[in-house]
Design a binder for these strands. Structure first.
Lengths: 138, 138
DNA sequence: TTGCGTGCAAAGGTTTTGCATGGCA
DNA sequence: TGCCATGCAAAACCTTTGCACGCAA
């Protein structure tokens, strides 16, 4: 398991994600972001590194709508986000982090009443953020 | 908009979904279910009808996991399932429906305290179901 | 030197689209 | 008859995999 080298591409990918904590990247976005900085990295390499980062717990993968590509977000080495829920705005794509005592109760309620252990760190609630709701006057 | 004919295939697909309200079908499941009843329907036709049903608000599409096929569920013409959450077991893949007053409060809390309008119908909570937790003794 | 990392291209799987034919109204 | 619907196959898409070469240790 510890058979891993420290390579230029691996650093580039990790640093890009880390440099914009909170932003969600698609695999292609990573490739073009790096390309625009003069670094050409292969598609397969990006996917392989993302998988490693996910397993290492440093990156989270999100399923976004409609057969589009997956999104990846740096969440850090610490587990500070463990009990955070994420709210993703379907309209503007903004991803919000929410920590709140009430939401902690959600997990216990679901466990108690429905026998299901929720993993907040894997869960994303979809909806519309304040800005978009006001802008669209929905 | 009203340019549509009433065809055998369209009826078959709508009736199959309607006949098992609450069940999640993949496109392939629809095809093989119909095939086992002696009705051969093309893949493209199924997808095209699903899209119409979604636009008509009678069917809901779920993307449960990246890389796998989408699931489609009949939800009827009424919007009675407004606050219907889904729990997906990361272990066995089971998809559970949860209708619960407490969860209704979640939406209002998030709206009130975080200014975010949650769409339960688009949201899937990930975790471990009762059976798997007991089986794995986690 | 060893063996993981890389990148290209090809494969795999799901969904969409083009086109000639079939079926509803 | 006019047009939408159908179904096959091919295309489009995202992601994974095979393989030869490159590079870290």
């Amino acid at each position: 398991m510890e058979n891993s080298y420290n390579t230029k591409q691996g650093q580039l990918i990790a640093e890009l994600l880390k440099s914009e904590k909170g932003r969600h990247f698609t695999a292609d976005a990573i490739i073009s972001d790096l390309a625009s900085k003069g670094h050409k990295v292969g598609k397969a390499t990006v996917y392989r590194h993302l998988e490693k980062l996910i397993n290492a717990g440093q990156v989270r993968k999100y399923i976004v709508e409609e057969g589009t590509s997956a999104c990846y977000e740096y969440i850090g080495d610490s587990h500070e986000c463990k009990s955070h829920y994420h709210l993703k705005c379907s309209s503007c794509g903004e991803l919000l982090h929410v920590r709140c005592d009430f939401l902690d109760e959600v997990s216990s309620h679901i466990l108690g009443h429905h026998g299901f252990t929720v993993k907040p760190e894997k869960t994303v609630l979809y909806g519309i953020c304040k800005n978009c709701r006001e802008a669209e006057n929905v």
